[in-house]
C-alpha cells in the first residue's frame, strides 16, 4: 500500500563552520514519513541524527546553516517559510521530544505554566480552559494525580515523569508530525518500556507521522516500520525494518547488527567493526565507510556511491549494489 507522504525531506545538507574547516553534519539526507508511520533514524553518536532533526524544525543556529535541500510538509517547503510561519509550525504541526527533558523544560516554571503556555501560544486554549486541558493531557500521559502535578517544578519529578510531561506538551496542540530524538536514552529499561508504550499508543490513536531517532537497534526493531541508517552525515541504507533486520545490505548496517549483543544468545558472536567513524571536517574521499569496510573495492576510495534503488522499498548507498539499481539514473549529487 502506498501512503501519501506527509513529511518529505529531500537532499538536506547542514554544515557548521568551525576553526578546523567546514563540518558536514548532514550531507544529502532524504526521508519520507507518512501519516501513522514511524520511521527510525538510526546511527552511532555524531552521525548527524540530531542535526537532521533540528534542520527539519529549522532550529539550526550560526555557525551552522542549512546549505541546501527541501523539507516539505504537506506540500509546503518549510525552508522557504517565514520565521513567523515557522513559529506556528513548531510545536503546532511538528512537535519534538528530546532525550533530556531537564534541558528543555524551564526549571523556574511549574508544569502548569509550561503546558498552558504552549496551548496559549498556539491558540488552542487559554485561562481555565487551558488548565483543564492540561490536566486531561497529563492524565492521558499516565501521570498520577495530574491536578497536583500541575504545581510541580521539573526537578521535583522523576526522569520518567518529566519525559511524560514533555510528551504531554509535544502532543498538546495536536501535531501531525512528532520528532522524538532519543526519547528514552536517559532512562532505565523498565521506564523505557513505559515511555515507548506511551509513544506507540499516542501514534496509534492520533495517526502521527513519527521520526524516531535512536542509536538502539532494538528500539528500531520493535517500534518502527521503516528505518534509515545514518553514517557520517548520510543515510546509507533505507528500507522496511523487518527486511533490514533479516537481510541488511550495506556493509555498515550488517556490521552494526553483528555488534549488537543478542539477549541470552552468547552463541551469536559479537563482531566489532574495526576503526572509528571519520572526522566530519576531513572526510575520506569516496565512500565514507571505505576506511572500515570489509568489502572495500578500488572504486570505493575514488568516488562517493549514490543511493542505489535496489528495489521499490530499499535504497543502499554502496557500490556493491550498482548493478542492482532499478532506477535508470541515481539521484544527483553535489
Amino acid at each position: 500500500m502506498m501512503r501519501q507522504p506527509l513529511l518529505e525531506v529531500q537532499h538536506l545538507r547542514t554544515r557548521f563552520e568551525t576553526y578546523r574547516g567546514t563540518l558536514r553534519a548532514v550531507d544529502g539526507v532524504s526521508l519520507t514519513v507518512s501519516r501513522g508511520e514511524t520511521v527510525a533514524l538510526v546511527g552511532e553518536s555524531g552521525c548527524g541524527k540530531s542535526v537532521a532533526a533540528l534542520s527539519i524544525m529549522r532550529l539550526i543556529r550560526p555557525p551552522g546553516r542549512i546549505a541546501g535541500g527541501r523539507v516539505i510538509l504537506d506540500g509546503r517547503d518549510l525552508l522557504e517559510a517565514s520565521e513567523v510561519e515557522m513559529r506556528g509550525i513548531r510545536g503546532g504541526r511538528i512537535a519534538m521530544v528530546f532525550q533530556d527533558p531537564l534541558s528543555t523544560l524551564n526549571p523556574t516554571f511549574t508544569v502548569e505554566s509550561q503546558v498552558t503556555e504552549t496551548l496559549r501560544v498556539h491558540r488552542v486554549a487559554a485561562g481555565a480552559q487551558a488548565r483543564d486541558r492540561a490536566i486531561e493531557l497529563l492524565d492521558a500521559m499516565g501521570i498520577p494525580a495530574p491536578r497536583e502535578r500541575l504545581r510541580s517544578y521539573p526537578h521535583e519529578l522523576s526522569g520518567g515523569m518529566r519525559q511524560r510531561v514533555m510528551i504531554a506538551i509535544a502532543v498538546s496542540c495536536q501535531p501531525e508530525v512528532l520528532i522524538a530524538d532519543e526519547p528514552t536514552t536517559a532512562l532505565d529499561v523498565t521506564l523505557q518500556a513505559q515511555i515507548m508504550d506511551l509513544l506507540a499508543t499516542i501514534k496509534e490513536e492520533r495517526g502521527l507521522a513519527t521520526v524516531l531517532i535512536t542509536h538502539d537497534l532494538g528500539i528500531v526493531a520493535q517500534f518502527a516500520e521503516k528505518a534509515a541508517v545514518m553514517y557520517a552525515g548520510q543515510i546509507v541504507e533505507e528500507c522496511p525494518v523487518s527486511r533490514l533486520m533479516e537481510e541488511p545490505l550495506h556493509p555498515y548496517t550488517s556490521g552494526l547488527l553483528r555488534c549488537v549483543p543478542r539477549l541470552g544468545r552468547p552463541d551469536v558472536p559479537i563482531t566489532p567493526i574495526e576503526g572509528t567513524v571519520p572526522d566530519l571536517v576531513s572526510l575520506p574521499a569516496g565512500c565514507r565507510f571505505a576506511p572500515r569496510c570489509p568489502k572495500v573495492m578500488a572504486r570505493c576510495r575514488q568516488a562517493m556511491p549514490p543511493p542505489y534503488e535496489v528495489d521499490a522499498q530499499r535504497l543502499v548507498r554502496c557500490f556493491l549494489y550498482a548493478g542492482a539499481d532499478t532506477a535508470s539514473a541515481a539521484e544527483e549529487e553535489d
Binding site: D197, D216, I219, Q222, L263
Partner: peptide, 24 residues
C-alpha cells in the same frame, strides 16, 4: 521477568512487555 521483557529484541520476537507501575 519484567526487566527481561522490557529489553527491545533484535532479530527475535518480542515477548509481551510486563510494564512495572511507577518508579523505583
Amino acid at each position: 521477568r519484567a526487566l527481561l521483557s522490557a529489553v527491545p529484541r533484535v532479530g527475535e520476537a518480542q515477548p509481551e512487555a510486563t510494564l512495572l507501575p511507577g518508579d523505583i
